Amino acid sequence: MSRVPSPPPPAEMSSGPVAESWCYTQIKVVKFSYMWTINNFSFCREEMGEVIKSSTFSSGANDKLKWCLRVNPKGLDEESKDYLSLYLLLVSCPKSEVRAKFKFSILNAKGEETKAMESQRAYRFVQGKDWGFKKFIRRDFLLDEANGLLPDDKLTLFCEVSVVQDSVNISGQNTMNMVKVPECRLADELGGLWENSRFTDCCLCVAGQEFQAHKAILAARSPVFSAMFEHEMEESKKNRVEINDVEPEVFKEMMCFIYTGKAPNLDKMADDLLAAADKYALERLKVMCEDALCSNLSVENAAEILILADLHSADQLKTQAVDFINYHASDVLETSGWKSMVVSHPHLVAEAYRSLASAQCPFLGPPRKRLKQS
């Protein structure tokens, strides 16, 4: 649940008159999402009104509101027999009622949201009550392989729920002597030191190019640089560091992050930047690179990204790559990247197969709970 924001200063709310007192009302909304995959969808019983329910879910471990999704594969009634019906059901509720908006969509073979439908307002739910769409999607369109909505005969539904909580009022009075504290510009100011090479005390040599930097900042941000300058190493004695395995453009992006906490060109060089972040123990930059690479996972590059993640101990990226390969196994196994990995990294192939087997055979063990970014 997000923290209630402070109200904007009255002088910034309007260029008009300023009242002596004010009130700011925040209506709290808890948002969460749920993904439900139905394997072997074409084998569902086709009687009209037949119901399939998901397991229950909530916004978190401490949330007492429990929900589930309900599907009628062949419609709810005679009117909707040519459609799939989809509903959000409130299973248990400690209150007399709650209000919530919802959005349903289908994830296609690429994991993209399609055929989205959402409620136009927050509906009133009581325990045992459901709301949804009797005519969510035509069955003939859903079952047509050309539309790519049932890869490997799996129907994957994605649901986003927004639950309306209580409202909170914050009130106060205006004073004539309003003090406005300026925003912190530390990142910009440190970035200026790097860009202008002011007050530098060490030189970093990268592929024949020299960059002036500040030992204190490098040591504070990177345990690797800290070790170089702290001990009686040649880098500490000469205040000069030779860097041979990072390209200059990648190095500059890494230094921008060290000084400012930002990497504006990360998406263009996420793979190389991940390697640099791993070498210099820049954990936050490493996770930022993992996130960017996750966003660009595809059938063509899944094997290469899995190898990269394994090489640099990028655990979150590795998990996402394995899950992606499992979901698109029939396509990924035909790529040149996968065939190369079979020869060069057989242990990763074995890991992917083990994960695929456990996903398809849940009876082999208890269900695993899916539970950071600093």
Rank of each mutant, 00 (worst) to 15 (best):
M269N: 02
I217C: 12
K215P: 07
L143P: 13
K28N: 13
F133N: 12
M117F: 12
V179P: 03
A357K: 01
F225N: 00
V181A: 06
Y327K: 05
E145M: 03
A109V: 12
M255S: 10
L65A: 12
Q209V: 15
P182W: 10
E189T: 03
P362H: 14
M35W: 14
L150E: 08
V126F: 08
Y123H: 01
E283S: 06
L155C: 12
F324V: 15
D140K: 11
L89W: 03
C289P: 00
M48G: 09
H345N: 11
L143N: 14
E210K: 12
L204H: 04
V126D: 11
F125P: 04
F199E: 15
E234R: 14
C184R: 03
N174A: 01
A207K: 15
T175F: 06
S355E: 08
P264I: 06
S42V: 01
M117K: 07
Q373P: 08
P248H: 05
E283H: 05
I325H: 01
M228K: 07
V4N: 12
L348H: 07
R124C: 10
V29E: 10
S92N: 09
A321T: 08
D152S: 06
P5R: 04
V224W: 09
S55H: 03
R198I: 15
A329E: 07
E46A: 05
P8Q: 07
Y259N: 01
W131Y: 00
G208T: 14
C202T: 15
A187N: 12
V287E: 06
C294F: 05
E97Y: 15
M48D: 03
L371V: 13
R3T: 05
N196W: 15
L293K: 06
A187M: 02
L364W: 15
W194M: 12
G132F: 00
E113M: 04
K318L: 06
A275P: 02
F32H: 12
E12P: 08
D166V: 03
K237R: 01
P73D: 14
W36F: 02
F229V: 15
M254F: 04
E97R: 11
E78F: 12
L155S: 14
S313F: 11
I325E: 00
K103N: 12
V161W: 15
K238R: 08
P10H: 04
Y24C: 02
K369A: 02
D144C: 02
C361E: 13
T319Y: 12
W67E: 00
Q316F: 01
Y259Q: 03
N239Q: 02
K103R: 12
R198C: 15
G60Y: 11
T114E: 13
Q26L: 11
F141R: 09
K318H: 04
E112N: 09
S226N: 11
D315T: 12
T319I: 01
